[in-house]
Design a protein around this nucleic acid. Structure first.
Lengths: 204, 204
DNA sequence: TGTACATCAGTGAACGCGCGTTCACTGATGTAC
DNA sequence: TGTACATCAGTGAACGCGCGTTCACTGATGTAC
């Protein structure tokens, strides 16, 4: 790490400290003072880089959406090799993101951030949502127009299923254990759903 | 309300004050002191009825699971008039519960309570889960045994979808609005899923 | 019915704590000459 | 290359706040006689 002015890159160091705290204690357990401490810095120093606690939290979420959108985009891969394969890849990418970037995920979806209160946040969040919707739209082109559900509804179903799987079965829900791996749960769930749409052959 | 000893029924009054606070500010925004204040009582009075903040929160969740299980049981109605109708009714009941009892719902699913740390909580939570699983099991009897997914997986899919719909599309997610009513989203989602299982005719 | 007593729900004051935030400051870094 | 100066990232002390929790208490209620 290059040491530049004083600390070097305190801004990013704070973001990373926040990430670990959020991953460990949830978005509400995260504290400006603790993040400062983890970055070996006085709490007051945080105010050189962020307007306050909320702003730091929002930056964590923003970086999360950035990574998330990129990951989904990569998985979608412009609908190649096939609309179906690309769609299933985005589903897997959703879960992979939640697993690999728990701090980001929690900041994005469990912090209750007001998107419109943070102008930097809304567009990148929308961008992430758009990828999934695009994948759904591509795929639904393979359906006869009269039995085609709106792509936004289609993608909302998958988003909801994925989010539910993460929240209920991936978090080490204390005192409760899932009999299935989240990845399997999502994969089979999406499979059944796509069969229901006529996008997969009816037989298993 | 019958006025009994001193306050009457402070224990339940505190639970109800907590419910409103949780519904308004989320489970982590809930505060023992505020709940006491809302019940017109000193914070110290709470300790006559609960061992502390966590215990009060857990009681809110416990009552929630109680209501939830009863509601699901009622909707399931022992699989009548048909396994399919009963199953769909439980799905609707899930969402209805989340909408009607937001404070309970949040305490149950968003507070991150450690089920095993609160011995009263685990059995009633399990009871609620069992209803949905029973509904799934009934329904899956209508499938040929070789294409029948395990009932627990089946019910996990529906649970995850329902939970995701609540979290993403029912909460007045600030700065973000859903194009679909959560109820519609869940109903269509379950419909497609059941068609995928061969439990509904393939055509719309 | 009346009185003396026991119970115990709720009080009020106090505690230590960590929080987010502010402010005047200092001293390391970057830059102009 | 050396010096004087400007910048500004981070410090350290302080603040007011609300939190959960404790404790000795008080006084309304219930009960025994």
């Amino acid at each position: 790490m290059k040491r530049g002015y004083h600390h070097g890159n305190l801004r990013q160091a704070l973001v990373e400290a926040a990430l670990e705290l959020i991953a460990a204690q949830g978005p509400t357990g995260f504290t400006l003072s603790e993040a400062a401490k983890a970055a070996d810095v006085t709490p007051a120093a945080v105010y050189r880089h962020f307007t306050g606690r909320d702003d730091l939290l929002a930056e964590v979420a923003r970086q999360g959406y950035e990574i998330f959108a990129a990951l989904m985009e990569f998985a979608f891969n412009n609908g190649k090799p096939s609309a179906l394969a690309a769609f299933e890849a985005t589903g897997r990418a959703y879960l992979a993101f939640a697993r690999k970037y728990p701090g980001h995920y929690m900041a994005m979806f469990e912090a209750g951030l007001n998107l419109s209160a943070h102008p930097d946040l809304a567009p990148v969040a929308q961008k992430a949502r758009d990828v999934l919707e695009r994948a759904a739209d591509h795929l639904s082109q393979h359906l006869p127009a009269d039995k085609r559900p709106p792509a936004r509804m289609f993608s909302a179903h998958i988003w909801a299923l994925s989010h539910g799987v993460v929240e209920l079965f991936m978090r080490g829900a204390p005192g409760q254990k899932s009999p299935f791996a989240p990845e399997d749960l999502l994969e089979t769930g999406i499979g059944i759903y796509l069969r229901g749409l006529g996008l997969l052959p009816p037989d298993r």
